[in-house]
Design a protein around this nucleic acid. Structure first.
Lengths: 241, 241
DNA sequence: AAGCAATTTCGTGTATACACGCCGCGTGCA
DNA sequence: TGCACGCGGCGTGTATACACGAAATTGCTT
């Protein structure tokens, strides 16, 4: 499963996809953290499906390390809710129940709404710029067919709001929740109808934000996430998931 | 420390303060989890002060285990934000900056407000009973001098609201945040003035909840946490912390 | 042939051993 | 006397080895 083809790269430039949302000044980092980051990426990107078994020895071979750092990586991911660890049974990619997914969507909606309200009250010029810029980028990417690019810009738009909220803890929590929901959001975000609807919702949201209407922004955000969640559930049902 | 006085209650409803927040049906649990739980308790109870160094070998000897389970326990606590892990330097009990503490208080306030709103909309008879009972218990404990008991009942009151909100993810998040803030809440909660103020705030909150006024409940809750945070900061400043 | 049970196998939980980076102390030099 | 460089101790990071429990497989019984 794509074990060897990892180092070499066609350009000579190692791709290193995300890089955008790196928080710390990238301290040395231990093997365990590297592995955790790699696995997290694969889970979020949907390469590792929920329910997938994560065997310590197999992963150890794959990353060319012993079981020890692998274990630590799995514990790390377990604590953030991305994988489920059952004592004596091992680790699997987290597979929340429908009810749990519902709760997570509701929670992230509420927290995004809080972020939107705070952003309204606190944003400076730089924040306003960033929100407008990312919103525009979102719109552009929406018209082109590139779903991956759209997802990235959509995240950037939301991130701009989180930053403007001036509360790091809030931002971290939302991003963590989004990671946990990523496998389920992906399904729906790829659909063209959803992108169009999202665009409109973003429009309302951006307008409220720039106008400084905190209540309207919070309401728009909650509605936005609610729509996403509902579509996700409808789609999931139609796919018998 | 107030371990025995737990069953008795003025109504006939056993309050059963902690125990409520036990998530799993208490599976076997591994040594690492036990150690993590023990350390967590000591941190939350204030026995281990923020900044305190956590030496793996020392802890290993203390719990009569090798470094391996200790390491896993520390990783666990690190992921939940209770300890800070610096690669190659080791672990210390988390010592957030003032700004971070501020963010955490704000976040927990917003989330408690969300919980209060949802509780208003969703609570059934059992929830209503529990909220009333824990509120009363809180009042009783407030008049007696026992600060430990008061803290416990205060937690139970809030837990009753979280339960009524019918969103497990929300509840878990709030409880995690409260653990991280515990060392800083303790200072202030012991003060008699705060207890009295809290009682009044609880009164307003409970009234709004029982009346079903979601907006008022949310507002009251946010105010309640805000007051707590402000008092904590004032006290911290006066103590040069 | 199907069901059940004992055994074997495999993977995790824990212990121990080795490697490497960080810190403190001492010595030599300006 | 003060500072810089180097060396040694120490603690974490990683690897390896052993123990225990759970699942799977095989053989027996009905």
């Amino acid at each position: 499963m794509a074990d060897q083809i990892r180092e070499e790269e066609s350009h000579g430039i190692t791709v290193e996809a995300p890089a955008v949302l790196r928080s710390e000044p990238s301290r040395p980092a231990t093997r365990a953290e590297e592995i955790a980051a790699a696995l997290e990426d694969e889970i979020v990107q949907g390469e590792l499906a929920p329910g997938q078994r994560l065997d310590e020895q197999v992963l150890g071979k794959r990353f060319r390390v012993s079981r020890t750092p692998v274990r630590e990586a799995l514990r790390l991911l377990g604590a953030s809710g991305l994988v489920t660890l059952e004592p004596r049974l091992g680790a699997i990619v987290a597979r929340p129940t429908v009810s749990e997914i519902f709760d997570l969507f509701e929670l992230v909606g509420e927290m995004e709404a809080v972020a939107a309200r705070l952003a309204c009250e606190r944003m400076g010029d730089a924040d306003r710029e960033r929100i407008m810029a990312t919103h525009d980028a979102c719109r552009v990417a929406g018209r082109s067919g590139d779903a991956e690019a759209y997802i990235e810009r959509n995240d950037a738009f939301h991130a701009a709001i989180h930053i403007a909220s001036e509360n790091r803890a809030l931002r971290d929590q939302i991003q963590l929740l989004n990671k946990r929901l990523a496998p389920y959001r992906r399904f729906i975000t790829f659909r063209p109808e959803r992108k169009q609807a999202a665009e409109q919702e973003h429009e309302v949201l951006a307008r409220a934000l720039l106008k400084g209407d905190a209540d309207a922004a919070a309401r728009a955000m909650k509605e936005h996430v609610k729509m996403l969640a509902e579509d996700a559930f409808v789609l999931a049902r139609s796919l018998r998931l």
